[in-house]
Write a protein that binds this DNA or RNA. Sequence first.
DNA 1: ATGGTTGTTCGCCAAACGTCGAACAAGCCA
DNA 2: TGGCTTGTTCGACGTTTGGCGAACAACCAT
Lengths: 102, 102
Amino acid sequence: MRDLYHPRLEDVDLANVLHALSDPVRLEIVRALAASGEVPCSSLNGHLSKSTMSHHFKVLREAGVTHTRANGTKRMMSLRREELEQRFPGVLTSILQSSKAA
Amino acid sequence: MRDLYHPRLEDVDLANVLHALSDPVRLEIVRALAASGEVPCSSLNGHLSKSTMSHHFKVLREAGVTHTRANGTKRMMSLRREELEQRFPGVLTSILQSSKAA
DNA sequence: ATGGTTGTTCGCCAAACGTCGAACAAGCCA
DNA sequence: TGGCTTGTTCGACGTTTGGCGAACAACCAT
């Protein structure tokens, strides 16, 4: 597997982040990460194929929303929550809060 | 011109709103509305064709982000700010705040 | 080594998106 | 009425997106 690209915080773009969060599948992933902290990708597999999920993981990661590290066979994913809070204060937090109601 | 559809507040969907805000052109429109209150569409024309701008206006309106009313030849657009604040507290506000920095 | 698990990558496809110009509609004003 | 202004609607276009299965890669366990 190739190296995983993570944008530097200062390169993270707001419109990009919003786009990453604008897909229901990805929003659900983010919600799960917010609830569970760092989890293996495998724990996030829903009704979609693994290639599709991998695609969504990549979109989130490249937008700067999540961080992924290799751990043996697994990939551990987590939210870049503190970083995003620093760069875009309140954005992720309020979105998570609002998405709970829905 | 046909009637302008505006979703009821309770039908406004978070992922939809985020998608509407995830385009740089539309984010800029929203920023302008936040800064100026109600303005005619014509005051928002940038370097894009009017048909393209009209399309973006429609996306924002149908996502529930903006409100449009006819006023003679013109269309007055405004943010549904208080409503969105009620439905998704902090979301629009924090996005606007963050988009200022960029 | 062999196999099992976990993800990524690579076509491929259909649907959605952003853009445009041309045509149309609605209102104003002379 | 006629013309001007302001927007919307309608194809058309190229690009991006989201979905899939198949193939590949990396790691662990036996």
